[in-house]
Design a protein around this nucleic acid. Structure first.
Lengths: 208, 208
DNA sequence: TATTTGCATATTGTATACAATATGCAATAC
DNA sequence: GTATTGCATATTGTATACAATATGCAAATA
């Protein structure tokens, strides 16, 4: 594996989990020394991450972490909703056949012990919605946007008063899938992300 | 402007207009010499373009232009459709107010003299559909995907038997916008891209 | 003759050196 | 005292040098 790929993965993880905070400046020489690599692969990793929205750069001033704030949620969540809904609509019989699996996952989500487990199962459900779409490019795009959204997992976990809400929405979506009405399921999925957007924003407003 | 930004723009243009063909290998030293720059900014530009889908890279084998084929159309057009439809739905009163402008553009499209002008006006119309969405991130994503789709402009231009078809679809979309029914307009826009997908694929099948 | 191994070469990946630009502070002019 | 200019420093941007890996050919062996 190339050094730049490792660096990219490491930086992305550090941004997702908050080790590198919003707006934090990324000094190239300092960072490369701390990571035990040279500036070249680090810069290449940062350029790749810039395209995905994790960092920004301004000429002759360098890289910094993008800002995870309400504005980002307002922009990001509708994108994810639209892409997931489209993937679901494109999925055909394969998703319909997997409805029981999704239903089972949703039950596990309802009884999840901790927040980490909840997020894991939630991701599995949403992955199940889209994995059969037969559009790798769409899935990759979605994956990138979801990775960005993961920066708000903390807010989402604390923000959900009753996780039952999300489960209920999932159940409706799965019911539409079982009924072979993927158009309806897509609409509900879009709504689900709209709800998530509101939830996260409310949490952000209270806790800043 | 940084050398790497110029290089990125130049390479992107060369791929869009076919100066760099599908699957063409991109020799770093040769290309950098021809462009009068060093390998460093060239590589940085290529890495940025890889994230946008214009080139791919395999470790220790280098960069090459991605393949503009039927598979790409099947993947790309539904993505664009979903994103444009979402942007349109998010646009609110601003698009509705701009309906007359869109209508006028569509009339100009109907009477466009040459293919280049047609594409220019078509892009203006689609830009008009989304520009008021208030979601810069969505617009940027859309712009990138549309830049990729531009690689098929040649196919699209030759493939459209009667440009009246596209105009008619536009007219329906604009009518829905005028009626303040953005949900319906979004659906129609999705269909419009589905039609475009079919048209381009048919052309590709005949001409390869 | 077919296959495999080893080397020569070419190309990418990484490190470092150099150039250009931005930033902050101090000195000077008003 | 304030503002401005100039320089010293730090940091990014680019070029180049070096290292690692892949590729192709030739020679040797079965």
């Amino acid at each position: 594996m190339r050094v730049r790929d490792q660096a990219k993965a490491m930086l992305q993880a550090m941004i997702s989990d908050g080790s590198l905070a919003s707006d934090e400046r990324l000094d190239e020489v300092g960072l490369s020394h701390r990571m035990g690599i040279s500036r070249t692969p680090l810069r290449e990793a940062l350029i790749a991450l810039e395209g995905e929205g994790f960092v920004r750069s301004v000429p002759h001033k360098g890289f910094s972490v993008t800002t995870a704030n309400e504005e980002m949620v307002r922009e990001l969540f509708p994108i994810i909703g639209a892409l997931e809904a489209q993937a679901l609509r494109m999925s055909g019989e394969a998703v319909i056949a997997s409805a029981p699996v999704l239903s089972a996952l949703n039950n596990r989500l309802a009884n999840a012990k901790n927040k980490a487990k909840s997020h894991e199962i939630d991701r599995a459900i949403h992955h199940g919605f889209v994995e059969h779409c037969g559009n790798p490019r769409l899935l990759k795009l979605l994956e990138t946007q979801c990775a960005l959204a993961r920066r708000f997992d903390g807010a989402a976990a604390r923000g959900i008063a009753n996780p039952a809400g999300a489960c209920a929405q999932h159940a409706k979506i799965i019911a539409a899938i079982e009924a072979s009405d993927l158009a309806r399921a897509g609409e509900l999925l879009l709504l689900h992300w709209r709800e998530g957007e509101i939830t996260v924003i409310n949490w952000l407003k209270k806790n800043t």
